[in-house]
Nucleic acid binder design. Structure first.
Lengths: 331, 331
DNA sequence: CTGAAAGCGCTTACAG
DNA sequence: CTGAAAGCGCTTACAG
């Protein structure tokens, strides 16, 4: 095995110019059949594989995308990532994945790094950055799809899940079952606030009683949910139901209830958010709100490819994805 | 916002050559303090961000790694991926992730694409390709860490989990509990065979009765486990325990048992493999064999960085990672 | 302490 | 139907 061949080697071997080799390979210009055959032979013989790096520099397109997520190990993201990768694979894109842990600084750094690497587009699950911030960092021309993200003036394409719809359904469901005292365990302060806000909107609309001490902020983890619920459930009066900003938190809340001898759903109803695979497998099975991960990834792929096709001048697009209550056993 | 600046723009703005700008930025050559200050000013003013693509082409290093997995949405891989990304992030590597679905053709195509993109190293979770195949495809010099993978002459660095240890523990555990009739639901034919082989070795050593019709092959999914178990458990005689090549299959097997009214663990013991997060959350909680995903990713990062540092001539390294039985409720 | 120029490996106007 | 040459945006011998 010889070291990597260049297009000039192929040209020499086939007795033509590298211009012609390039055209034979790309098909952008007709090449005489006999010439083409000689070239293909040479390519074969030398095991020539074009350097995509050089192509990228020359064409100013990398055929590379960036996926920026808080944490790929969080069960929500892999399904979304897979759908995105599948959606763009057909057109020859590969995807750089990086984690931010939801940290504003991490999100900013990830964006800058991806810009420096000249990716053709970015999908960002944003917790701490507005689309305007994103646009400022990446410049005016780079295709970006933000998922979720803080509201405000929209300066990127956007995929949002209509959290308020599922949340509203859930609150109404609890209300119909006679629940009046209601708590909410949200993600970390400053992140995912919009879920808390949507929840409060629905709860207020139905006249639910949401005491301040029944609202907690915690990391998006099982341990976070456990800790939050342990303190929340220790008060002299406790809510009849707790809704959570994601399923992991909800599973932690159920852990806490179990530890305290509180029966679910009899003494306490628990509702999660996301509908990760595990939700259907825990005991009791978790009632939750679907966050269509796979659809989100597929929609990002669509939007990004459309944006790449249409250019930066076309108006920003927003896709709103449905969420809905999935009744199981925990509420 | 103006379009992307080049190093020549900075040089003009600062009144120096691009050579000096390059050196000021990289620190590879001393630059007079005053000159450096002018350059940094210009960089700031123009919002110059070096094109890593051009740097990569010139330096013949991309600071990019490839992670090739069967399916990032399979719960085993995200934890491993996260640990890998964390392990190489500090030294400025970004990672391209792609899925193969365990298909030999997909694995080959992924490798070729990554070679064409001139990644500095590859981590591959291989189901269908030997290290010799991999080496042939990528050439002699590219750092590659294969995880798992078919055995044979080793031509890449290698991370293997000692499946046989945990499998042996599990078989012994069942034997000690009086189990003699034992089945195994493996992954797809040709993949993961080594788990079946390791299982059979342990089972034979202890004189277990493993009838041919108690061994099945199925995709690494819950549905696969369900289907396999439905036919396996329908025979006139059925095993007292079923071990599985992964947790998803085991969860499917438990689904099937439930559907058939077979009580776990009383009438049938079930043991999984991997210890994914869900394993501790299902009912009954799944007894399984730990497959240290996060440690695997971290070890891949270590090996790859060491290989990149030492060059292709250093002898291949192998790391064997421990597996062990985790007793829960299903066996 | 600094610069002019070559070159990484491609693609593509321009020309014949 | 084909080729010579410029250029994508950097880094680095070589020279002073």
């Amino acid at each position: 095995m010889v070291s990597s061949r260049r297009i000039a080697d192929v040209a020499a071997e086939a007795g033509v110019s590298q211009t012609t080799v390039s055209h034979a390979l790309s098909g952008r210009r007709p090449v005489a059949p006999a010439t083409r055959a000689r070239i293909m032979d040479a390519v074969e013989r030398l095991d020539y594989r074009p350097d995509r790096l050089a192509t990228s520099l020359r064409m100013q397109r990398t055929q590379t995308l960036a996926l920026i997520v808080p944490d790929i190990a969080n069960p929500y993201y892999p399904a979304s990532a897979r759908a995105l990768l599948d959606g763009v694979n057909d057109v020859g894109f590969m995807t750089l994945i990086t984690n931010t842990d939801g940290d504003p600084e991490g999100e900013r750094a990830a964006l800058q790094e991806m810009v420096a690497r000249r990716v053709d587009g970015i999908v960002m699950h944003s917790l701490a950055t507005t689309t305007a911030d994103v646009r400022r960092i990446v410049g005016p021309d780079l295709p970006v799809v933000v998922v979720g993200g803080l509201t405000g003036h929209t300066e990127t394409d956007l995929v949002v899940t209509a959290d308020s719809v599922g949340l509203g359904e859930a609150v109404k469901y609890l209300h119909d079952r006679g629940v009046r005292d209601l708590g909410f365990v949200d993600g970390p302060e400053g992140n995912g606030m919009y879920r808390l806000v949507a929840f409060l909107g629905a709860a207020n609309a139905l006249g639910m009683n949401v005491q301040d001490e029944w609202v907690a902020h915690t990391p998006f983890t099982r341990e976070g949910g456990f800790a939050a619920a342990m303190s929340l459930l220790h008060g002299d009066r406790r809510p009849a139901a707790i809704m959570c900003a994601n399923d992991l938190i909800a599973i932690g809340v159920m852990d806490a209830a179990r530890a305290l001898g509180i029966s679910i759903p009899r003494d306490l109803a628990v509702i999660g958010f996301d509908d990760i695979e595990t939700a259907a497998l825990v005991t009791p099975q978790l009632t939750t709100i679907t966050n269509p991960a796979s659809l989100t990834g597929a929609t990002c792929a669509e939007l990004l490819l459309e944006r790449i096709g249409r250019g930066a001048a076309a108006p920003y697009m927003t896709r709103i994805l449905p969420t809905s209550l999935v009744l199981r056993e925990s509420a």
